[in-house]
Design a protein around this nucleic acid. Structure first.
Lengths: 246, 246
DNA sequence: AATAGTTATTGTATATTTGACACAAACATG
DNA sequence: CATGTTTGTGTCAAATATACAATAACTATT
């Protein structure tokens, strides 16, 4: 792989992490220090992103960025589209930062947005040379560049696509209870669902298989564990999808 | 607007045109002549596309390309995403053509796909310096570059989004009959629909208004004309959308 | 002027899906 | 063993989806 950086094309990833409570997004701190005084000029947050290499496929670049941050190789990745407003890097802090990194601040950069889905349990080592943390979706304020727009687009797409059933499984561990799945849908869709009706529908999904195993160590009646069967999903394809869940 | 061409970023548009019979796509002929003999080296078809200007918004670039080809300014435009396979321009003919146009064939170009919708009646002057023609969707063979992939993505997106009601109106003239609308849905969705049930559902749409006018000059009972009301659509917003049509 | 050809318009009965709702069983804890 | 907590399950009414056919309105032809 050619390692030269392409000056005009970048990739930004909205990394959604679910912790059984809420949706979080992995954000990277961007802190500029004054070179002489060492004082903080500004400090804010960005999505995980970087320029692509000149001979690198866009999706490969996204996977590379995800791997560097989470150590996971095969994350679910969905492209959101290109963001190419000529003014997208023209914020004051953005210009200072690009200059600091050695880019030409006036260069046109279009970015391709992706989003990734994972369960927070999956990612242990989040630390690197820069501070990277989970932020609850509901508490995210203003981000660098046009990253709020990208986040918005990602959330919009997630809310639509999660109805196609298999997306939800990316946000859960391998084995999960129906209640955990329901809670996830409630968090993402932003509304509560009826337990009995939810189960009735879910059990129609051929790709959702009940295991011979129950939850352990919980102070209540343990639920059966379920898993997503990729084989059955591939088999039944689109019958097993779309608006199965509401 | 800065007129310098950006060497690394292009825009390609899938222009869908409906002619009350079938879906068509506007394609551009790409014919390379041997400079000395004048013989045709190859001749094939491409989507409507071009490089963006360095300070031009992506959507603006798409509109510019559409205007140059159709003379229409306000076409419905939807972004499909970025296509960035490093090998996307490496076909034999593609390399010859890029060289002929004066680009560096080895340059990395990512393209952003869009699709536009219009009724074939809307566009009169299709001629320019290069041959541009409507091709029935079902008869399109192999296109240049990765344009078959872009076309596929556009069609997929169109089939999903047309269920959100207002897309269909872009493919019809201002006034249309319910049968014309039904035929359009049948063509796009690729299946026949029950007339009575179709009408029952459609008439629930608040944004679809019946005019005091009937079809004229047809050799059968004339149908009422209908129109799409953008005002009512904006008013009722998402109640008026999604899976109203099946 | 009558007829043939074509498409528009409309309703009902049946099957299917959705939505609301409550209680006993199973585990951990103290 | 009593308490707290979550699981797992069925029915009925309402809404929605589907299948289906006969008459009306126009043009073209004779």
């Amino acid at each position: 792989m050619e390692q030269a950086i392409h000056p005009n094309i970048s990739v930004d990833c909205v990394i959604f992490g679910y912790d059984f409570e809420k949706l979080n997004v992995l954000l990277v701190e961007r802190t500029l220090l004054d070179e002489s005084s060492g004082k903080v000029v500004f400090s804010d947050l960005t999505l995980a992103g970087n320029h692509v290499f000149v001979n690198e496929d866009l999706k490969d670049a996204a996977h590379r960025i995800l791997f560097d941050l989470t150590g996971i190789k095969d994350l679910y990745l969905e492209q959101l589209g290109a963001f190419g407003d000529p003014e997208r890097l023209s914020g004051h802090n953005d210009q200072l930062w690009l200059n600091y990194l050695g880019y030409k601040p006036e260069d046109r950069v279009i970015t391709v947005g992706f989003y990734a889905l994972l369960n927070c349990e999956q990612v242990k080592i989040v630390l690197k040379d820069r501070t990277v943390k989970w932020y609850p979706l509901t508490e995210i304020g203003q981000l660098a560049y046009d990253h709020n727009r990208i986040l918005e687009a990602a959330l919009h797409d997630l809310r639509i696509k999660i109805r196609t059933a298999h997306l939800a499984f990316e946000l859960l561990p391998e084995k999960f209870t129906l209640s955990q799945l329901q809670k996830l849908m409630e968090v993402v869709l932003g509304k509560t669902l009826d337990k009995r009706n939810f189960r009735k529908r879910l059990l129609k999904l051929k790709s959702l298989v009940q295991l011979d195993e129950k939850q352990k160590g919980v102070a209540h009646k343990p639920g059966y564990l379920y898993a997503f069967s990729k084989e059955k999903y591939d088999l039944y394809d689109d019958q097993d999808t779309f608006s199965v869940i509401m």
